[in-house]
Amino acid sequence: MRPTVLSLARRHRRLTGVLFAVALGAAYLGVLRPLRVLGAEAVALPLFEAVGTPRAEGFDLVARPGSADVYAFPEGTLTTGLTEDEMAAVARWSSPAGALFVLPAMFLIAAFPLRRYWLLWLGSHLAVGAGALGVFVIGLGGAGWAFSLYSFSQTYVLETISLAIPLLLWLAGRAEEAADPPVVVHPTPAVGEAA
């Protein structure tokens, strides 16, 4: 019987995992990274500029070309020609699914090439990103504490999701393997065969 692609992938699971991880990394660089930049320039910046509260008018918003970030500077900082120094920004919004998505996703796809964890992963990062977008809008338009909440979501929340869940999945996957190891068939000596 001719081996199918799936049976080959199962047989060479480690190699398949590494190949998928490399492919995912390449897809990130080729597709997702430009989409993140587009998300900052074409979605987040217009949305933030549309926030029309008095507090929001106190910020100058900048999306640098080729960057997936939008910076909120205190009003006047840029027009005085002083700086676009990141340190002067009150807050920085970053498009979701950045490095904290792609690195754990590559790890997950390398460890479990035939499971769709990485897709679930992308979904969870996009969900957190959507929530964080709303929180940033609140920070921009209404309440300063929301910027702190946004900062928390982009550091500890993302780090918790991105490091702890892959670790649990990996440990659980190893437990499954240990409980149900791959069957190895040893040739049985024929009756009467010399030992």
Binding site: L168, L171, A172, R174, E176, A178
Partner: peptide, 28 residues
């Protein structure tokens, strides 16, 4: 074992959520 502890945490949404909530509470 470290592995079946992870399996237990992943066994239900509740146990996973509780674990993540503990972590996030410490960070908060």
């Amino acid at each position: 074992s470290p592995m079946n502890t992870a399996q237990q945490l992943l066994q239900s949404h509740r146990s996973l959520a509780l674990f993540l909530a503990k972590m996030l509470a410490a960070y908060a």
